[in-house]
Design a protein around this nucleic acid. Structure first.
Lengths: 213, 213
DNA sequence: CTTGACTTCCGAACTAGTTAGTACATTTTT
DNA sequence: AAAAATGTACTAACTAGTTCGGAAGTCAAG
């Protein structure tokens, strides 16, 4: 399976599809579902519009494929954090930092989720793949809270989904609302200093919330 | 300026424009800038597409008008809270509750901001009206923190913009990500019970953060 | 290892339907 | 009468999706 002739076409369906998805991810995340143009996606691809329809069938189906792919990427990165061995507070801080870093590193994903919300999560609903997700993180948080309450680190029995929401909200908002927030307050949320400050801030806030009563 | 004939056309530019803006707000916030259809907006109006172009010139200009109007509405509602007389913690809790209630009551606004972020706040940048906004809330927060530090209620000297972001993030996310979050965790974020719990939760979290060190 | 038939993969040009925006005439108000 | 406001009908451009033809890979038989 080595290289072929230099000039002729080399069929590589795998790569072609990946290529399309890469470009489509960018286009959808910058222009939205309705705003993205199939022709524009095709042009930026090293293949043609014909291929987009050959492999994905329609614009919406392509969008769904992009969405699923983005979610799948996270699922793999998540998990395997080995938090059970850490003391509760440190485990929680590690989990929060991971969420924070993920959103910071994947603005495309954040934007796609925003777009999906504008569409009332209609496409997500049709995809079982995506629906059965993120549930593990809730169990992780619940376990941490339980351990913290047992050893006296925490004093408040909070709902793990609420805690997850609080963490997500902060991490997500920083990225999703970067532009309007930055414009209004003339603050660049992507400066390293700011990132670092926010990273500890959200962790401190959640920890102090759980410690208080 | 009393009533005119019952059947003939009555010119009412003021009302016509308001009518257009009302419908356009809904359409843009449900379908996005690219997804919204001028024809659809026109149809739902009690006037015609001709009038949309007569008064607003273009689809984008209409979108901008919608955006400015939404922001203006808040500015008026904000302010006048008379927080200076309340003790620091209570002042902060009142401010947070106000932000929370506003976002909860104005999903259209929240969605428009999300949409504007997808477009990198490009339209907002072109509108001075919107840019010079929300700055007052920062001064309000700063004053509360200062008073709290002075009288020993708070122990942490936090950046007021960061605090505002933390509050906004939570309140905004609940509304903006209602659909994806609800789908994944099978939780309806618009239930009265949930709303009430979250309302106190964000306040408790911010307060405990400022009290801790 | 060559042939050829079959399948998979791909390109260029086209189409049918949609959509933002307009021309022109008409009515209402001052 | 002049200006402001409105209705009807149209168009030029765009855009998702398709048609048709053909090249590249596969595999079995000779």
């Amino acid at each position: 399976m080595a290289e072929r002739q230099i000039n002729g076409r080399k069929n590589d369906p795998q790569r072609t599809q990946e290529d399309i998805l890469d470009v489509a991810t960018e286009e959808f995340s910058t222009h939205g579902l309705a705003g993205a143009r199939v022709d524009q996606i095709a042009e930026r691809t090293r293949t043609s519009k014909r291929m987009i329809y050959y492999y994905f069938g329609s614009k919406e189906a392509l969008y769904l494929a992009v969405l699923e792919r983005s979610y799948r990427k996270i699922r793999t990165l998540e998990a395997d954090l080995e938090l059970a061995n850490l003391p509760p507070e440190q485990a929680l801080r590690t989990l929060i930092a991971t969420t924070f870093d993920h959103d910071e590193a994947n603005p495309d994903f954040v934007r796609l989720v925003s777009i999906e919300n504008i569409h009332h999560a209609a496409h997500m609903l049709r995809s079982e793949a995506i629906r059965d997700l993120n549930v593990s993180v809730i169990q992780t948080i619940e376990a941490i809270i339980d351990r913290g309450l047992a050893d006296g680190t925490f004093r408040r029995r909070a709902d793990p989904i609420d805690i997850h929401m609080m963490i997500s909200a902060f991490c997500f908002f920083r990225v999703s609302n970067r532009y309007t927030f930055g414009t209004i307050f003339r603050r660049d949320l992507s400066e390293p200093q700011t990132i670092e400050r926010h990273r500890t801030m959200i962790a401190d806030a959640v920890v102090s919330y759980l410690k208080s009563r």
